[in-house]
Design a binder for these strands. Structure first.
Length: 204
DNA sequence: CGGAAGATCCACT
DNA sequence: GTGGATCTTCCGA
C-alpha cells in the first residue's frame, strides 16, 4: 500500500474559491479496515458561506445541520439530500466562515472493484459510473453522516497529495443544481480537470 | 405540526 | 428531455 501524505490544515484554511481548484488532482482516501479506496479528485464546487445564496450557510444560517460548516477548515461536512444521496464537502476558511468545497467527482486510483460493488454495478463500469457525481462518489466510498465533522488529515477519510493538473488544464463554469440561488447561480465556482471523462454531467 | 424543497440519480420515451 | 423515488431539514403558523 502506498504511503499517503496528508494535505496540511493550512491548505483548507483559505477561501473556498481558492481551495476548490487547488483540490483537483489530489487524492481522497477512504480507509475501511485494512483496505483503502482512493479517488483522484477531478471536479469540485466552492460554496462561499453567508454571502452565497446557494450555500447552506447563506445569511449566516446556523442550524444543527450546518453547525459543522462553521468550524475551522479541514473537516468533512456530510449531509443528506433527495431522500437518498449523501454529499461530501470539505470545510474551508476559518471558524464562523461557513464556507466549503463540494467534492463532485473523482477517478478511481485504488479499490475500483469494491467501489463497483458498492455502487451496485454488475459489469465493468465506464468512466464516471463509479464516482462521476457527488451522490455516486459518496456511495462508492461508503461515505455517510457518520463522517460528518471528521478531520481530513487522519482517520477514515483523508485528503492526500496527488497529481494536480496544470493551471491551464482547469475548466471553470457555473455550479450545478443551484438555479434557485439568484445571482449566485451564475458565479463561476465549479472547477474540473479539462477533458477528464470522469467529470459529472453537464460537462464543462 | 404540516408542507415544501432539495448542492441527485436513474429509467424511460 | 422528463418525471419519480425517497426522507431529512427547515420554516411558518
Amino acid at each position: 500500500m502506498a504511503q499517503h501524505r496528508s494535505l496540511p490544515r493550512s491548505f483548507f484554511q483559505r477561501p473556498a474559491g481558492e481551495v476548490a481548484p487547488d483540490l483537483l488532482g489530489h487524492h481522497l482516501v477512504r480507509r475501511l479496515g485494512r483496505r483503502s479506496l482512493i479517488l483522484r479528485i477531478v471536479e469540485t464546487e466552492a460554496y462561499l458561506g453567508a454571502s452565497d445564496r446557494a450555500s447552506h450557510a447563506w445569511n449566516d444560517r446556523r442550524t444543527q445541520r450546518t453547525s459543522v460548516l462553521f468550524r475551522r477548515g479541514g473537516v468533512a461536512y456530510v449531509y443528506f439530500v433527495y431522500g437518498m444521496h449523501y454529499m461530501l464537502n470539505v470545510v474551508t476558511g476559518g471558524a464562523d466562515d461557513g464556507s466549503a468545497v463540494l467534492i463532485r467527482a473523482g477517478e478511481p486510483v485504488a479499490g475500483s472493484e469494491e467501489m463497483r460493488v458498492r455502487r451496485g454495478l454488475e459489469r465493468a463500469p465506464r468512466a464516471g459510473d463509479l464516482a462521476g457525481g457527488p451522490g455516486k462518489l459518496c456511495r462508492a466510498l461508503a461515505i455517510d453522516s457518520e463522517l460528518n465533522g471528521a478531520p481530513l488529515d487522519s482517520g477514515p477519510l483523508i485528503l492526500a497529495e496527488g497529481s494536480p493538473p496544470a493551471p491551464h488544464e482547469v475548466a471553470v463554469g457555473p455550479r450545478v443544481g443551484v438555479a434557485y440561488a439568484g445571482a449566485a447561480a451564475d458565479w463561476l465556482l465549479r472547477f474540473a480537470e479539462e477533458g477528464n471523462p470522469h467529470v459529472s454531467r453537464p460537462r464543462l
